[in-house]
Design a protein around this nucleic acid. Structure first.
Lengths: 115, 115
DNA sequence: ATAACGTACAACCAAATGGTTGTAGATGAC
DNA sequence: GTCATCTACAACCATTTGGTTGTACGTTAT
């Protein structure tokens, strides 16, 4: 199972995209259901163009995609990319437990034999 | 169980800290085992001061902490903060499945019964 | 056809980021 | 004490970011 193969550049974009409250909010909304860019823009106190830029950042990161529908552009959250990021963090967490296990192993060795 | 309560500002810092390959590498190393700042700096082609700054970013994000040991400052990865970030992403992912479940529920209702 | 709507994108600006060099303070070794 | 090492931090610089306004273009409605 190929769990995760995001390149360094992709990871940069994914985490950078997540490092902004407006973008996280957009992600949450579009994960729940698709929403047009202007509909999204209505939720925030910034200009339409600013929201458009935030969506573009999320899109470049692969966290959302856009689907044309008439004159509207519907933004959808992409669970796949999000899942890959989650998996990576879980792997980082595992480094810690592996380390604990390794130390436990060393201690066990010292108690019983060589050295 | 209070799984996760990172504020917006904390999340900004955590994800921003993760959005750089050098910092991700430092995190991996220090999760495996503590390492002094100068020892870390030896791994990269940038200046000592630059690495010091990266460590500071990770520290402000709560992803690592420093422990003075003699004249050295040992950097340790913090699995707790990392876990909180992971949990948040998992929650974001759940929005998707919840949405799918919700839709499935609606379809089931339309078909005629409550299963 | 014309008006209104939704979007795209360029130009511009202030602030933050990621790097540099240089200086200075503690601590450990000799 | 003196010297080398590890760290901290300021000042500076180029680039990126997050916001703005303005203009242009395709689509829908009247």
């Amino acid at each position: 199972m190929v769990v995760d193969d995001l390149s360094d550049g992709e990871l940069d974009r994914v985490f950078r995209a997540l490092a902004d409250p407006t973008r996280r909010d957009i992600l949450v909304r579009t994960m729940r259901a698709g929403e047009s860019v202007s509909s999204l823009a209505a939720h925030y106190r910034m200009s339409f163009a600013a929201v458009q830029k935030h969506v573009a950042v999320l899109e470049r990161a692969g966290l959302v995609n856009k689907q044309r529908h008439g004159r509207e552009q519907i933004v959808h959250g992409d669970p796949e990319t999000l899942h890959r990021a989650t998996t990576l963090l879980e792997r980082y967490e595992r480094l810690w437990t592996d380390r604990a296990t390794r130390i436990a192993g060393i201690l066990a060795d010292e108690e019983g034999s060589t050295t």
